[in-house]
Nucleic acid binder design. Structure first.
Lengths: 354, 354
DNA sequence: CTGTTAGCGCGTTCAC
DNA sequence: GTGAACGCGCTAACAG
């Protein structure tokens, strides 16, 4: 196996033609006679010729490569997202260059500079941790860019984006509980200052007020964030008791891990789900369907978001006009929610116990 | 924002020097006087100069890019793997080009050709579904390549690899049950013809024979694969009863999803884990720690495998000699296993029930 | 120390 | 139809 790769010059020499003839023949130029074209193609095949994308890129000024920035690839969410991105990218003949930011803003900037350096054709940024105050610096972008699930007030002209409608998701979750007859409904948040947390809470309030129910301060539990970072699971576990004590019969949790934590707390307190308490999560992670009882939850659509974002980028390449996308999440009904009934007795139970 | 990027020629013109002086200055060549070097660097800064990696690559014959092939990025396992790869790649100044094969051999070949076309410096292949009969074609590889968790008889010279020691993993799982006093131990496999399934079963037998226990045919359950593809979860759920009927007090499951399925079957049958039956999984997926009871399992080390594979590739770049790596999995003890005791009564229980 | 020149491999005028 | 020549942006060998 020869060390150096075959170039069009090599095959031109062997064919007794010039390198530009070879170039044309391989690209099916109509300027070339059918005969020599086939001849050259055959020769290229035999010589194991593999065109050099680098040289082509230098000429075309296109790399057929998109840069993707995610917080962490190990996070199954971003895994699904990248899956969607990669699929439509590959179908369009593009490749994905992957960078992880680990939620660090400096690393995100470094990743963008790296992508500029490598002359990617477009950039996709999906970094839940980057707050809105940061992304101003992204303005320096000179290549088409799509933001995924990132909050920006300047969504309008400068940025293109696709995101999940968290407010609607919160609504959907709470409406489900309302439909089941619940009126005392709580929310457990995580208290990072993310768009998601805020908007899901907004959706919660919205659904309640649409049902003419007044919100009760005690039904909303959000941890203090000055202390140690705490896992979502532990948040659910620790905050559940106070909501139960406040007499709720249903709880909408910020996400599935919070709900799972809450569920475990229920088990330890002897509260049975869903008979005594209904729980709704958010995200629809794999775990949600395997736990007992299986978790009713609002489903993210990460693969789809990836596909849409990449498709949007392709449109931008062709300079089409694109509209930002706000994806509607949908409810997945499972075993952790049911009709409210004798459930109201729980609060007494707890009060006795405390 | 100017459309065309700044080149070293642009800044050379402005500085009144030649482009090669600029090139040297920016690369800290000792041939350049400190004065003009600083001057040029400042100018480059002001003009927002970003070097062109494509042009550099064409010159260096290196792209500082590695190609990574995985079955599916959405699979959390591969997510962790890529996480490990990306981290050490980035530290070494390399970028990751990602391709998914979806277990399709043709797509895998296409991915490799694509990587050749793009002149990556090295390739990492992690594709559990590709059998040993296929990878002969990988021999055409002309760039340094490391195989991850792929079975090859030709591991020796041609291929470099890092893999998990499934046989040892099986041993470790069964030895744990033996240590707890179990003597009637079962295995639930999945019956794909993968290296993993075969070797974990081998480990199971090895541990039993080392303990001077004779294996019982009825204690090993492996589904027929001619029918529909069936999820690991359902395999565990469906095969559990027959093992319990055969009187086992402990079961080593091919992986965690199988174990979770088995666990659910236990719940439905009124068998309590671990009091009546001990379960050991494999993989240590996130779910394993959240389910009740938390699952004792043999842990994969995917992030580490990614790091090691990428590090090996870096060594290959420097033409160092490298040894193939066989990673030892380790046991994570949790709630689904305990001392054998009155457990033997289960078999009777089942027999009565059937 | 700095400028000139020659490629890296390919696509694309512009002549013939 | 085909070849010669130029340029994409950069590094390196060779002059001075």
């Amino acid at each position: 196996m020869s060390k150096r790769k075959i170039s069009i010059e090599d095959i031109a020499r062997k064919a007794g033609v010039s390198h530009s003839t070879v170039s044309r023949a391989l690209r099916d130029s109509p300027l070339i006679s059918a005969k020599v074209r086939e001849e050259i193609k055959k020769l290229a095949q035999e010589m194991n010729y593999v065109p050099n994308a680098i040289a082509q890129s230098l000429q075309n000024q296109r790399t057929y490569t998109v840069g993707v920035i995610v917080t962490s690839i190990a996070d199954p969410f971003f895994g699904e997202l990248v899956e969607g991105i990669e699929q439509v990218a590959r179908k369009a003949g593009l490749n994905v260059l992957l960078n992880a930011s680990h939620g660090d803003f400096d690393q995100e900037i470094a990743a963008i500079e790296n992508f500029h350096y490598r002359r990617v054709d477009g950039i996709l940024v999906a970094d839940s941790r980057i707050g809105k105050n940061h992304n101003k610096r992204l303005t320096q972008l000179t290549v088409p860019t799509v933001l995924i699930n990132i909050d920006t007030e300047a969504h309008n002209e400068t940025f293109h984006s696709v995101a999940i409608d968290d407010r609607l998701g919160g609504c959907v979750a709470v409406e489900h509980l309302l439909d089941l007859g619940h009126t005392r409904i709580g929310y457990i948040g995580v208290g990072d200052s993310s768009k998601a947390d805020q908007q899901r809470l907004e959706g919660y309030h919205l659904a309640l007020s649409q049902a003419k129910l007044s919100a009760n301060q005690d039904w909303v539990a959000i941890p203090q964030r000055d202390s140690q970072t705490i896992s979502d699971f532990d948040i659910g576990k620790q905050l559940l008791p106070q909501l139960v004590a406040a007499g709720v019969t249903g709880i909408f949790c910020y996400n599935d891990m919070v709900a799972v934590g809450a569920l475990l707390a229920c088990k330890e307190l002897g509260i049975s789900v869903p008979q005594d308490l209904s729980l709704v999560g958010f995200d629809n992670i794999a775990l949600a369907s395997y736990i007992t009882p299986a978790l009713t939850t609002v489903s993210q659509r990460m693969v789809e978001m990836g596909e849409l974002a990449m498709t949007m980028l392709l449109d931008l390449f062709e300079e089409k006009a694109v509209d930002n996308i706000l994806l509607s999440p949908f409810l997945v009904k499972r075993g952790s929610t049911t009709q409210v009934s004798k459930a109201k007795k729980i609060s007494n139970y707890i009060e006795v116990k405390i």
